[in-house]
Write a protein that binds this DNA or RNA. Sequence first.
DNA 1: GGAGCGCTGTATCGTATGTTACGTATTTTG
DNA 2: CAAAATACGTAACATACGATACAGCGCTCC
Lengths: 287, 287
Amino acid sequence: MGPPSRSRGGEKMISSIAELIADRIGTMPASERRAAQTLIASYPMIGLKTVAEFSAAAGVSSPTILRFVARLGFQNYPEFQSSLQDELAAQLQSPAIRTLNPPSPGGGTASPMLEATLDNMRETFRHLSDKQLADIAARLADRRGKTFLIGGRFTDPLARYMAAHLAIIQPDVFHLAGQESMWRDRLIDMGKRDVLVIFDIRRYQDSLLRFAEKAHQRGVQIVLFTDQWLSPIARFARHVIAGRTAVPSAWDSSAALFVVAETLIGAVTRQLEAEGAKRIREMEGLR
Amino acid sequence: MGPPSRSRGGEKMISSIAELIADRIGTMPASERRAAQTLIASYPMIGLKTVAEFSAAAGVSSPTILRFVARLGFQNYPEFQSSLQDELAAQLQSPAIRTLNPPSPGGGTASPMLEATLDNMRETFRHLSDKQLADIAARLADRRGKTFLIGGRFTDPLARYMAAHLAIIQPDVFHLAGQESMWRDRLIDMGKRDVLVIFDIRRYQDSLLRFAEKAHQRGVQIVLFTDQWLSPIARFARHVIAGRTAVPSAWDSSAALFVVAETLIGAVTRQLEAEGAKRIREMEGLR
DNA sequence: GGAGCGCTGTATCGTATGTTACGTATTTTG
DNA sequence: CAAAATACGTAACATACGATACAGCGCTCC
């Protein structure tokens, strides 16, 4: 149906392919969604390469990539690439109104660490559509299922942080801690209506991958927080959040993912306002 | 003759294909120069299209385009295109000319949550001098004493996050978890040379205050991460980091404190470079 | 002014790339 | 639970693309 002709009269205003994808990613089959996520993660560069490279990066076959671009409304792959190029050209020409973030006025501290972190956040959110966030929030707010959270060596605190908040506004929120063998046993509690939130940035942990695969096989919906190179778990994830992690430090930064987590916490809370408020009041009463 | 390998030792520093062209355009024949000029005119978009389109735009033949890219030192046309793409990708990542997601029409931003968070960070760092950060980092890097970390209900994950990193680059780093009675017993291990890092934002927890007071009495140096209203623990703290927490959400944001923590982790790591690097290598070896 | 050299375009070739058809696996529906 | 529909990948296919050989032309230098 919808051709890529943008900005039609009564329709939604779509001004970039990224938005187009965000708009239709919900209607896509699993493999095409992986293609979409891969493209968004390193937008738009992967789309400028060959179909073979694109498909390899996404871990799907070439025809899937072609079906993906077809679903976006393009007649063929070259037409899709041209569109991406036009978009890029427009971006490069734009006057680059960079009034934001004053370049350290009055000889400010100019901490490169802070600057990099701020950029990471903007970049992370640039690749993250409001719709995608809303979808994930809706999923997390769905009270018919349970919510499990787990993280890797350095990211497990993020899982804890998120769990600490979510557990207050709704029941059935569990943070998976401790040994790998401990999580395993929890698998038996997980089913199709449940959500598993995984934090995994490189160096990606095999234990998490194994766990994610098993959960996926049980039909659990996986929400993955990872870095821009995408943990292999992305293969099993229903939703992928790719945060930027590069900072001038010996370590990678999880700050962008942290902010996304906070944003989601806020969105879920708003969604559960009615029940949530009551719950919170009750809890306060129990102090 | 010069290959496209950039930034060679004794040679001129060439960091982009545009510079490479400017450098060699003088040695080119007429037709190739037209190709060069055409590319520069709409840099780099034309170079991403096919040879045929490029040649048509420049008004020369296809072989001339190929000779042109060959003269720049590329083996073939695809290699030339890849180089352009890499350059573009780097430009898009760098904070140079980034157009934000939707150009925030009418000042209304897409994600007020993100904007508030970014503001919090700038504001937090504005009130935080480099010297203060350096002092704290030096204290944490001092290997004569032990480091303990603890947090409140929502901030304990931050303590964990920091502990996870610090524990790798130096020994004697302990995260205090579990019940209050558990920490108590650790007090006996703490002395004047030790550091206690506490995370406490409102609503401030009495248990933490009591613990901080006792530690203070034993001469422990306290580093306090709190919000702008300052936890009562500030009274006993040697160093206080006041992060902004206000966001349009039902919850307060700990993101600014998180970034300060990451900054400190980076600073401590740099300080312990020598020992740290060795430790990290050893640990990698133990895998 | 003639011979040699370099620059450029035309025409042809091989191949990498996008495309399509089809069979299997998976999910959905009655 | 059966049957239909959808999704996905393998493999064969056609084309369009980059690469190359070659001939014509202009220019320079004896």
